[in-house]
């Protein structure tokens, strides 16, 4: 594992998390306003762009590294997204949800390490 591969994997993770949050923001706006509202279209476009960037970064990583290097980082996305959704989107996060997300993250890391 080189420094550059770690940077790329973290960049892909960041793009994925930010993309998911923007999509959720877009759909909340769609419910609140309409599918023609800029409050829906703008985060949707930004979210899809970020997920597109993550797609190609991931493809580049898949060409060079084993899934056992890439998947553990995807596992971490579960707990990161739950916490970010609570802070940035004001979703209600119970202790039970946090514990569940931590267990799922840890479990995915364990499953994909081998």
């Amino acid at each position: 594992m080189t420094t550059i591969s770690l940077v790329l994997v973290l960049a892909a993770l960041l793009a994925f998390v930010a993309g998911q949050l923007l999509l959720k923001k877009a759909m909340d706006a769609a419910n609140l306003h309409s599918f023609r509202s800029m409050k829906f279209l703008w985060p949707l476009a930004a979210g899809v762009s970020l997920l597109g960037a993550q797609f190609f970064l991931n493809l580049g990583l898949l060409q060079r590294y084993d899934l056992s290097f890439i998947y553990p980082f995807q596992g971490l996305s579960v707990i990161i997204i739950s916490i970010a959704a609570a802070i940035l989107l004001r979703e209600k996060l119970t202790l039970q949800l946090v514990a569940g997300s931590v267990l799922i993250s840890a479990g995915i890391v364990l499953v994909s390490l081998t």
């Binding site: 949800l97 514990a99 569940g100 931590v102 267990l103 799922i104 479990g107 364990l110 499953v111 081998t114």
Partner: peptide
Amino acid sequence: SLRWAGIALVSLGLALVAKP
């Protein structure tokens, strides 16, 4: 066994998330 442990953790986590 490491994978079984991971599968158990994810299942437990899903049960916790599914309750709400």
